[in-house]
Design a protein around this nucleic acid. Structure first.
Lengths: 135, 135
DNA sequence: GCGTTTTTGACAATCGTTCTCATTTTCAGA
DNA sequence: TCTGAAAATGAGAACGATTGTCAAAAACGC
């Protein structure tokens, strides 16, 4: 879908497996988790390939990448367009949130300081209702 | 200054060296960079100690930690209170920015979804005027 | 000073991720 | 359908940042 141009890009069993898995699981998962899930499903895909495929998907903008404090980066298939995430620290439940005001604020602030080619990262962490009640 | 309570915490040459260095350098630097700077100054401090000290300072809230996409975490001594950073991708120049509207927006969004104990991370990346002009 | 307790630091270990490269697969054309 | 060049795979090595280990060294209350 989001295959710009240039490098050929061939259809392989492994890529389909990763894409399919991503379309079926909820929330964010690490490359290693996804690799383990594929293994459990009986799909035979190398860890290296999982990493490569995830990176390609991320570059293409088909999946989101998040780097939580403390370790591995997490991947998730998500809706098109720019948005951010509200993530539960305990259960990992994720809510996509849009903040047009934040986008324009960030751009404006950067512009005021003479910065161009601006991007930003924003993640909100908290404890969701269920997890807060559960203890 | 921000030494709560509990564990003793002793004054050592190494900790002073790290703290002093942090108060003198500009912008964000990795633990390894800071370690190299100390070495260049003739200060003899082990890399392990640099990591430990930085972690302690970060826990105490005396320094900021940032995880840019693609690698090591960066440390910086910075002003008290909650704020965010506008960072040049090329030269590392950093501007502290405050966004009260963003803070309240994030809290409000989280609250609407039933999340409590909310925190967030926000970093803005761009190319500063000088770097944009320089090439 | 003394002794206890913390801290240090060289080194090994760990962990996520990337690289290497020989083998396998894909797919456009014959 | 067959063929072959180009792309993709994957097992394992390599890598780089960070953390653990533990004996030796420093700090500080007494």
């Amino acid at each position: 879908m989001t295959t710009p141009q240039g490098t050929a890009a061939r259809n392989t069993r492994q890529r389909s497996a990763v894409a399919t898995l991503l379309s079926q699981v909820e929330g964010f998962h690490s490359a290693q988790e996804l690799h383990a899930m594929l293994r459990d499903r009986g799909e035979r895909v190398g860890l290296t390939t999982v990493y490569r495929t995830l990176q390609a998907l991320a570059d293409a903008g088909d999946i989101d990448v998040m780097r939580p404090p403390g370790g591995e980066q997490l991947f998730r298939r998500c809706s098109d367009g720019h948005h951010h995430h509200l993530v539960c620290r305990t259960c990992g439940r994720t809510v996509e949130v849009a903040g047009p005001a934040v986008e324009s604020w960030a751009d404006r602030v950067a512009e005021q300081h003479g910065f161009v080619d601006v991007s930003h990262t924003l993640e909100i962490f908290g404890t969701c209702r269920e997890c807060a009640a559960g203890r």
